[in-house]
Amino acid sequence: HDVTIHAGDKTIHVHGASEEFLRIIEQAKRDGIHEEELLRLIEELVK
């Protein structure tokens, strides 16, 4: 999957995102996670 995530003034493109990655991001959004926290989460996941 190619994913584009908008968080605040940043746009992150993730190529080859796994289903698990997508679920984590969707869950985080539903939980109302702060955008900066979401960015950190994404950066950890894509290392």
Rank of each mutant, 00 (worst) to 15 (best):
L39N: 04
E44Q: 10
E44S: 09
D2P: 11
F21S: 04
R23V: 08
H6M: 13
L38H: 00
A7S: 08
T4S: 08
G8R: 00
L41K: 01
D31L: 07
I24H: 04
E26A: 09
H34Y: 09
E37L: 08
E36M: 11
E26R: 06
H6L: 13
R30W: 09
Q27E: 11
I24K: 09
R40K: 14
V46F: 13
I33E: 02
E26H: 06
H1M: 14
I5S: 02
Q27N: 09
K10S: 09
I12C: 03
H13V: 15
L38A: 00
I24D: 01
R40Q: 11
A28S: 05
S18L: 07
V14A: 03
I25S: 00
L41A: 01
L22E: 06
H1A: 12
E43M: 13
T11R: 01
H13R: 05
D9N: 12
T11D: 08
E36G: 08
D9G: 11
A7T: 11
L41H: 01
G16E: 07
I25T: 01
L22Q: 04
K29A: 10
V3Y: 09
I24C: 04
R23T: 08
H1C: 13
D2C: 15
L45M: 13
V46I: 15
E20F: 06
E36V: 12
T4C: 08
L22P: 00
E36Q: 11
A17P: 07
D9K: 02
I12K: 01
R30Y: 12
R23M: 13
R40C: 07
D9W: 02
R30Q: 13
V14G: 01
H15P: 09
H15I: 14
D2R: 12
V3N: 04
H1N: 12
E35Q: 11
A28L: 12
V46Y: 10
L38T: 01
R40N: 09
K10A: 08
Q27R: 09
G32N: 08
D9P: 01
I5V: 10
V3W: 04
D2W: 15
E43L: 14
E26I: 05
E43W: 13
A17V: 15
V46N: 07
R23H: 11
A7F: 15
S18M: 04
I24M: 10
K29G: 06
K29H: 11
H6V: 15
K29S: 10
D2N: 14
L41V: 03
H15V: 14
D31A: 11
L39S: 04
H34D: 15
G32W: 01
H13C: 07
E35L: 14
F21P: 00
D2K: 13
D31K: 01
E26T: 06
R40F: 09
V46C: 09
L38C: 02
G16H: 11
A7R: 03
V46M: 15
I5Q: 02
A7V: 15
E35R: 06
F21K: 01
I25Y: 07
L45C: 03
E43S: 06
E37F: 04
A7N: 07
D31I: 03
E36W: 11
D31G: 06
I42V: 13
R23N: 11
I42H: 00
L22V: 12
E44L: 10
A17G: 04
R40M: 12
S18E: 05
A28Q: 01
G32F: 03
L41M: 08
V3L: 13
A17R: 01
H34P: 15
H6P: 05
V3A: 05
A28G: 02
D31T: 07
T11I: 14
H34T: 15
L39G: 02
D9L: 04
E44R: 07
R30V: 09
K47E: 11
K47P: 05
L22C: 14
G8A: 08
V14E: 02
L22Y: 09
L38K: 00
E19Y: 08
H34R: 13
E43Q: 10
L39F: 13
F21Y: 03
E26D: 10
I42E: 00
F21T: 08
I24W: 10
R40W: 09
I5Y: 05
H6K: 07
V14L: 13
G16N: 14
S18H: 06
K47V: 12
I25F: 05
V14P: 02
R40L: 13
R40G: 05
L45D: 01
G8L: 06
K47D: 10
K10L: 13
I42D: 00
H13E: 11
F21I: 13
L22H: 05
I12N: 02
E35V: 14
V46K: 05
E36K: 10
V14T: 02
I5G: 04
E37R: 04
I12T: 04
T4G: 03
E43F: 11
A7H: 10
I12R: 00
I12V: 12
L38P: 00
K10T: 13
I25R: 00
L41S: 00
A7G: 06
T11L: 14
K47N: 14
I24N: 03
G8C: 05
